[in-house]
Write a protein that binds this DNA or RNA. Sequence first.
RNA 1: GGUGAGGUGGGUGAGUGGCUGAAACCACCGGUUUGCUAAACCGGCGUACUCUCAACGGGGUACCGCGGGUUCGAAUCCCGCCCUCACCGCCA
Length: 426
Amino acid sequence: MLKVKYIKEHIAEVKNGLRKRNWDEDGLKIVDEVLELDSRRKNIQQEKDQLLSEIKSLSKQIGGLMKTGETSAVDKIKAAIPEIKGRIKALEEEGGKVFTKLEDLLLSIPNVPHELVPEGKTEEDNFLYQAWEKPMPTLPEGALPHWELAEKYNLFDFKLGVKLTGSGFPVYRGKGARLERALINFFLDQATKAGYEEIWAPLMVNADSARATGQLPDKEGQMYHICKDDLYMIPTAEVPITNIYRDVILRESDFPIKMTGYTPCFRREAGSYGAHVKGLNRVHQFDKVEIVQLQHPDHSWAALDEMVDHVKSVLEKLELPYRIVRLCGGDLGFTSAMTYDFEVFSAAQEKWLEVSSVSNFLTFQSNRLKLRYKDKEGKIHLAHTLNGSALALARIVASLLENNQTADGIVIPEKLRPFTGFDIIN
RNA sequence: GGUGAGGUGGGUGAGUGGCUGAAACCACCGGUUUGCUAAACCGGCGUACUCUCAACGGGGUACCGCGGGUUCGAAUCCCGCCCUCACCGCCA
């Protein structure tokens, strides 16, 4: 959520940002409407504060008079109060309406894209930031997509998942399960080595947490909700990890705060079925290692680059062909100012699969989180937040299986072997 | 699931209707002293919104879990809700 103050001071910038997100001119009126509501809010509050102040001082007078026993003077003052109270009540009602409306509008304004974010409507328009220039994997005759490989080697089982839970809940078994665990450990080790503190977080969060990172109210349908206890299954580790610092005021010297965590991720993602979401490409439960940084505003762009480099190095160690795109205005997430997507080539499907999304949210997220820091002069500012996947497991597994298949079996990348304990799946 | 206790500033914790945005202590920050560290002493130290000032700063309002009520006036009284802790029961 953007601050009104920010909008007020950057009207043109905010409007251009919305244009980049393909809002039409009519939609941009929301900006003026926000400013209009905010000035009404201010006027109402000023007037109300003035009246409250009057009552307060009258009350103090009464306090003094009571002590000296001047009850007739007290009664005179009391008589004036109901009228003031009536005016306060009217202002409160109006103010409440204005405030609610303002809040609604603010919630519907997305973050301002960075100037490097390209124009565009769909993923076709994303900027290819780093292409894959080395040779693509060569597959043997009769190469199989990962879901057939999984069946052939008994690595994971969707039908069994349906029996236990429902569609989109794969059961990993044998070397498939071990591969999953190995990747998690490998990713966590990489992140820890890069200076991220490992967090083992709850898999359910309360509504306050979901609201602070922006899942509520925007993406309520995406989360599984446990009605009885009013808890939400996390769609990403970002939610519990970032919320550790909800309502916190840091010192400047606390930066950077770097955290990583593995969690399963639960996504309802209703309504998308068919060939393009076959196998592990899209599931309701998948595993992911997330990296999160809380940064001083001066350093968040450098931190974004650092996170991109981290993800790169992990993919290189796995020897997977990847490319990086910078998302265009139309593809950019609501809360993000700039996002790099990492895509890994899945050779048998001949498709690029998104495996990581690294974003800088600037103060958009910290505003709702109330994550702030105090500078040397003691002034308080919003911190910057960033996060990225490093990495999402299911699609990594898909491409790893497909790309590394040989006539003898599926070869495990060398760096991963200490974690799997085997070097081939056959 | 049952019973009981309790939610006050970064922490401990005082405060049962006006002089309390809130004692005291600890932590933290600044200073004095000191060969260094420590100790001692002095001073400072909540957040949000808002007005004002070139700026330093100054003013107003709200906030003692959340929401509502009583009252001229509420941290303090009343009602509802939420949460935490302890013990018992059940249990990985």
